[in-house]
Design a protein around this nucleic acid. Structure first.
Lengths: 143, 143
DNA sequence: AAATATTTGCAACTTAGTTGCATTTGGCTA
DNA sequence: TAGCCAAATGCAACTAAGTTGCAAATATTT
């Protein structure tokens, strides 16, 4: 891991008062190094033979979510994806785009959507998520 | 099952050329009778002791999805929800609202959202889904 | 009513994530 | 710097949602 990433991971852990353990620094380092949601399995693969046990990864990610460092992205595959929460607001994260051909997911951080309005009295909308599907540039049949 | 619902279920099956078997009519009947996404388990419960095997339900729902009669709604719980596709367009379904207190999901069929625009050349957005979370009228702490 | 391709149900399996518990470790205090 | 202890880790076993294979049943066609 690059030392700048490692330092940033340590700083983040300090900022939320989580102990700076090896698994936590490593997992946060992976999420800092990529710019898109990863599954537990993808995180394990990226850490290779030094990867912590899957239970530890799940529990670590859970603590990050609890502290607001990380968000879960709910994509179609019935598998959770985790990503840094840094450019999300209270009300909404950026839209996620998943390619129906290669399956890759991209974060559209530059895209903002208006919040939906409640269709009737009484609903309080706290959070909005937008998921997009289609072809990524690599798989675009018209390109 | 009310005979009008049963008739509608049969008509739908005919329209997509699926055999009119008991499990299919029953499952479609359940989806016609409610106006929100249901899980496989909820469908089984509603059918009681006459419910088909869960494998049959999954396969039946899959065939409905294939024929465009039913959509999968991807909600947070890692469990699939199925609903009639009738008021969805090619590009987007209505937003789904899930109450963070009681967990119930409601369809906001009256709400339309603008489609997201691709942030850069090359992405083709084919479909958009919007998920909302908050308090439903029943659980609204301010009401 | 018989023929046949489709559908169903059962049992066994897979995969993602969880729980319990004994062991290890980070951070604090002396 | 050593020692303490709550917090974190890893292993094994478990749960829940959905899938696969195959033999038995059934909807449609003739």
């Amino acid at each position: 891991m690059k030392s700048a990433v490692k330092q940033k991971a340590m700083d983040l852990l300090n900022s939320v008062k989580l102990r700076r353990t090896n698994p936590r620094v490593a997992i946060l380092g992976v999420l800092l190094a990529v710019d898109r949601p990863l599954t537990r399995d993808q995180i394990s693969t990226r850490l290779g033979r030094d990867a912590p046990d899957k239970v530890t990864i799940y529990r670590t990610l859970e603590s990050f979510v609890r502290e607001g460092l990380v968000h879960r992205a709910f994509l179609r595959e019935r598998v959770w994806h985790f990503e840094l929460a840094d450019d999300c607001t209270e009300q909404q994260c950026h839209p996620h785009f998943t390619c129906i051909s290669c399956g890759d997911t991209h974060c559209f951080t530059a895209v903002t959507m208006p919040m939906a309005r409640s269709p009737e009295e009484g609903f309080v909308i706290g959070h909005q998520r937008v998921q997009l599907e289609g072809f990524c540039p690599k798989c675009n049949p018209n390109a």
